[in-house]
Design a protein around this nucleic acid. Sequence first.
DNA 1: AGGACGGGATCGCGGACAAC
DNA 2: GTTGTCCGCGATCCCGTCCT
Length: 297
Amino acid sequence: MNNIKSVFSVKDLENLSGVKAHTIRIWEKRYNLFSPIRDDNNIRSYNTDDLKKILNISYLNNFGYKISKIAKLTESEMVALTQQIYSEKTQASFAISNLKFAMFNFDAKLFHSTYDELEKSKSFEEIFYDVFIPLLDEIGFLWQTETLKPVHEHFISSLIRQKLFSEIEKAQKNVNFSNEEVYVLYLPMHEIHELGIMFVNYLLLRKNKHVIYLGESVPMEDLQEVIKYYNKITFLSYFTVQPEIDNLESYLFDFKNSILKREQDRFYILGKQVSDYHSQIPGIYTFSGIQAMLMTL
DNA sequence: AGGACGGGATCGCGGACAAC
DNA sequence: GTTGTCCGCGATCCCGTCCT
């Protein structure tokens, strides 16, 4: 099947499936659902097949199937049943479950087949809002619990980035913008979480906006250059980890003083670092989410 | 100290069954 | 048909133990 030697603790399975560790142990005892390897101290360790199984079981259980019924199913019956109840309504959670599994198994093929299936009934925007954003939120949670390793995040991020690149390219070819207002998208120094700002890029292009995308880790002085070319600019950024909270105000004051000198220019900011921050500085606006920001355009 | 284990107590839920 | 009781199941909480 595969040669990935992933090992998970019972706590990892809990974090990934939402089923309590103790419940997993009880199921194991009563229904022989799993046969984890034990170390010298009798600590369980599970493999990726176990992960797949608990994700399927959790999915069916959440859907209302009793564990006693689920336990009687063979592996293939379980997969068949999972696909049978797979519907429009539950498609997103099913896809998220698949993508999580793809992430832990470094399985790009599963990522693409899941995506292709979603694409049959959803637009790229819908996929991003309904599947990728919840997935990334969950990855954030798994990150905190240390279930996730950096390689997993890199792997899944790069696959999502590929999709964004491809959609952005299509949108760039079809865009019809006027030059009167320009959106300059960038990430501040040392900020490398690019998916959010790339998605904003895509959405603006779809709204026929003129976008200049500068990418990650852009020094402030580079932004001064671009002002010379346009009469009215909306700068747009996504602060996921940078600038740090303690430096946020001074960054914004610097921005106001060195970039935002003209009355007509604006600076829109999204991201975790500004989630609790309300700017008092004229021309600088923070938003709690992408949709809230789009409403003002 | 913290994490994991496993056993026991308890609670809510639902099915089965009998009595009215 | 509905009401009441009983019982099993699944989940959760708590506690004591063990190990690093």
